[in-house]
Design a protein around this nucleic acid. Structure first.
Length: 376
RNA sequence: GGGGAGAUACCAAAGUGGCCAACUGGGGCAGACUGUAAAUCUGCUGGCUGAUGCCUUCGUAGGUUCGAAUCCUGCUCUCCCCA
């Protein structure tokens, strides 16, 4: 468990680093593909570890708890073995599901009562049992149980929600320190900054999270519908307080432009469903801009998806073919689109690291922003 | 040769006197998607129009009616059964 900063950009708060986890080293800034249910949808592990060279993926405690169930994962010997993934894993605590499945949950001081979205059965999550579940899942990085406040959110509710998250954090940290890893390797626990879009709350929360003294820190409750400018303001405020020597994880973000901006504000880790989900739905990110591959204009375009791309999705398939697959709802279409988008995101992250190292990040970022947000 | 059924928009298929430019599904076109209840969801899909509205449409030619995709007659075509 170690985080070393390798280079710093002189003009922004961007930095490159190396995060050493129990299952390998992670170069930061890094993008973490989302694999909620023990799979990055549509991409097999050989591809992830192979051409895409993914070092860290994300799983979700809520989903894995419901299906296949914690016991099954424990019997398998942990999530790494269960899904045959030898590199690193981060699990989200289920805090986001408290938000996204709001209609079926009830919060109390003690924890959150849920109804399963699968069969309606009732379940109870607490800061403590979420630690136990994540011990049993065995991710390298586990997340504290938080409430991701909705947007918009009244200041009063945001404050109460944040304070609850802070009390939950104390209980979670205590339980984390009192329990041992199940599989013989160290796990890191990341606490999560909340506070909606209110600067005073965010500041308070960042201070609380920093004081927990964990190996890394996360910023949550953003990209839930607020204006992007508010998001950047909250990120900047948070990173100015969270310790520079520890990795900072911006949860659930984002678009390529979001990532460029947030790296400049001092973020090291990102996860987002955009490249995978939007890819399955036909939205492709390229070095020249965004393509909706379902549009008729690509029907007879036999050029590569991204002429500058180097994943096999770019070098071996044409836009016309991929359009046909997506339009026909062929499974291969979703697979190729996902691999392409992840390939693009990883290319972007590697460029970011390169530009930070060589000192040209800020200027390069401004040029890239224009290109990447363009609709082709 | 005899008997029966039917022809509706790109396709399939509802509608059987006014609430019909016409249900619904598919297809097509476009949009959305940010710690994944998502290989999902939304809108549009005769023409002109920002909307109201106007114009042309339910095989075809006529007719009945204030009013027809719907009722009547001729014609054309398709399908099924029997010989």
């Amino acid at each position: 468990m170690d985080f070393r900063i390798l280079s710093k950009d002189p003009e922004t708060k961007a930095r490159t680093g190396l995060l050493e986890l129990a299952h390998g080293k992670v170069e930061t800034p890094v993008f973490i593909p989302v694999g909620t249910a023990a799979t990055v949808k549509g991409v097999h592990q050989r591809e992830l570890a192979g051409d895409l060279n993914v070092s860290l993926i994300l799983g979700n405690t809520y989903h894995l708890y419901l299906r296949p169930g914690i016991d099954t994962i424990r019997m398998a010997g942990g999530l790494h073995r269960f899904m045959n993934w030898e590199r690193s894993i981060l699990t989200d605590s289920g805090g986001y599901q408290v938000f996204s499945l709001a209609a079926q949950r009830k919060l109390t001081e003690d924890g959150a009562t849920f109804q399963s979205h699968i069969d309606g059965s009732r379940h109870f999550f607490t800061p403590e049992n979420i630690i136990d579940y994540q011990r049993a899942i065995g991710a390298d990085i586990i997340m504290a149980f938080d409430e991701c406040a909705p947007y918009p959110c009244e200041p009063d509710y945001a404050k109460k929600s944040m304070e609850l998250t802070h009390r939950w954090l104390d209980r979670g940290v205590k339980h984390f320190n009192e329990t041992d890893p199940v599989y013989g390797f160290q796990q890191m626990l990341f606490p999560i900054v909340q506070g909606s879009i209110y600067p005073d709350l965010r500041k308070m929360s960042a201070e609380k999270i920093a004081s927990a003294g964990m190996g890394g820190n996360a910023i949550g409750g953003l990209s839930v519908g607020e204006p992007e400018e508010d998001m950047y303001t909250m990120v900047e405020l948070s990173t100015s307080i969270l310790p520079e020597t520890k990795p900072r994880y911006l949860m659930g973000v984002g678009t390529p432009v979001n990532i460029l901006e947030s790296v400049a504000l001092g973020i090291d880790l990102f996860d987002c469903v955009i490249p995978t989900r939007n890819g399955r739905n036909g939205m492709l990110f390229t070095s020249e801009g965004i393509i909706n591959i379902k549009n008729e204009k690509w029907k007879d375009d036999f050029t590569p998806v991204d002429p500058a791309g180097n994943s096999f999705a770019d070098t071996q398939y044409s836009r016309a073919y991929l359009r046909h697959l997506i339009i026909s709802k062929e499974i291969l279409g979703a697979q190729i689109a996902t691999i392409h988008n992840l390939g693009f995101y990883f290319w972007l992250m590697s460029e970011i690291r390169e530009q930070i190292s060589n000192g040209g990040f800020r200027l390069w970022k401004e040029q890239m922003k224009k290109k990447l947000s363009k609709r082709l």
